[in-house]
């Protein structure tokens, strides 16, 4: 009987709550980065649509999301596809577009921390130096930026609002600490006019 390796997450699944705000790691998802090879973009778009039933987002700073699947823009000609565990995401993509794009498994490379609750945008504004006004950063908007000193991919998951901070696994605990500190720091009075 072989030893079974049990997975271990860097952040406990139990959400941390401060008032009505909550911070919790998202369930582990399969993540694959897709980076288009030269002159392959049209074919890649077609192949992804065919394989996943969802399109690559048309513009930088956006994501397409449907039924548990999300595809985030993460750089020029580069995307991050995320799907629930057991979706066989890598296999599907390899078959469909292995010739058109570099595919790299990022399932373990990144951790998603979700911040949600009333005034979550005011807490996020303590971390990321980007404009979170709904006109600039709405539902499914994506930004590659830094939360304090930590590089993150930020996505607005829900209008509630809720934000996904997608962070390198090794930095997840530091980011979790920083977000929690921002939550404990309270909502600035000027947000609550």
């Amino acid at each position: 009987m072989p030893d079974i390796l049990s997975p271990c997450a860097p952040i406990a699944a139990e959400p941390c709550r401060v008032g009505a705000l909550s911070l919790a790691p998202a369930p582990l998802e399969e993540m694959v980065s897709i980076s288009s090879f030269s002159n392959s973009l049209p074919a890649l778009r077609e192949a992804v649509l065919h394989a996943l039933g969802a399109s690559l987002p048309p513009a930088p700073g956006t994501a397409t999301r449907q039924q548990g699947l999300s595809i985030l823009w993460i750089g020029p000609n580069q995307w991050l596809a995320c799907a629930p565990q057991g979706s066989g995401l890598m296999e599907k993509l390899q078959v469909a577009c292995g010739a058109h794009a570099a595919l790299t498994d990022q399932t373990d490379g990144r951790v998603t921390l979700t911040l949600c609750g009333p005034y979550a945008h005011a807490i996020a504004a303590k971390l990321v130096p980007i404009d979170l006004h709904p006109r600039c950063f709405g539902l499914s908007s994506v930004a590659l930026t830094q939360a304090g000193h930590i590089p993150v991919i930020l996505m607005q998951r829900d209008r509630q609002p809720a934000y996904d901070f997608i962070v390198f696994r090794s930095l997840a605990r530091s980011l979790h600490h920083d977000i929690l500190a921002a939550m404990r720091g309270g909502i600035p009075e000027s947000e609550q006019n």
Binding site: F37, Q78, A102, T104, Q106, D108, R110, F168, R169
Partner: peptide, 15 residues
Amino acid sequence: PGLDVRFISVTDAWA
């Protein structure tokens, strides 16, 4: 820029 090559960090993906 003409080289057809792509990079991405996988430092955190692997123990």
